[in-house]
Amino acid sequence: MNVFRLTGDLSHLVAIILLLLKIWKTRSCAGISGKSQVMFALVFTTRYLDLFTNFISPYNSVMKVIYLGCSYATVYMIYMKFKASYDGNHDTFRAEFLIIPVGGLAFLVNHEFTPLEILWTFSIYLESVAILPQLFMITKTGEAETITTHYLFALGLYRALYLINWIWRYYFEGFFDLIAIVAGCVQTILYCDFFYLYITKVLHGKKLSLPA
């Protein structure tokens, strides 16, 4: 464990909690893409299947349970509890155009052709594109609530910190996982234009709005 990976995990945890609180407090999931949240729940489910069979550390197990619980709670709130506020008309990204190619790629490019490893690879590839419906929705609505931009910033920052963690681990431990690194690069690159808008607008007290 190194400081980049720890701050990455905490940034990820902050993002997940921020979103949960935003929906719970405002009792509304306006501006939130349900499709992205369903894909994140799928990412955690397919990645943490070894939760009970492969104990790494108390920290690892606790975080996995929190991620799983929060992601399912978020999906529940979007599609059940606060369904009336779900903005389905703007959440129109075709998720199947992501899930099917990612599923195929996981079969072709993986470390080991076993069910657990293919599902883990699927979760890594899916996570790298899971935010696309959310970013697409923001371009459709032309704006995002400030709390939602903080959520997205923390979420994007987590994988950027993981990239530094992988440089650290390669240098000090000789460890590297090319599948996770390539997917992590793609994932972080997808946030770049959001990062630019966030830093130039939101951090200057402006609302995030896109030229319609």
């Binding site: 070894d50 470390h111 996982d177």
Partner: peptide, 10 residues
């Protein structure tokens, strides 16, 4: 690194 023994990252 060879086959990843077990994925120790979240």
């Amino acid at each position: 690194a060879g086959r990843i023994q077990s994925h120790d990252e979240l």
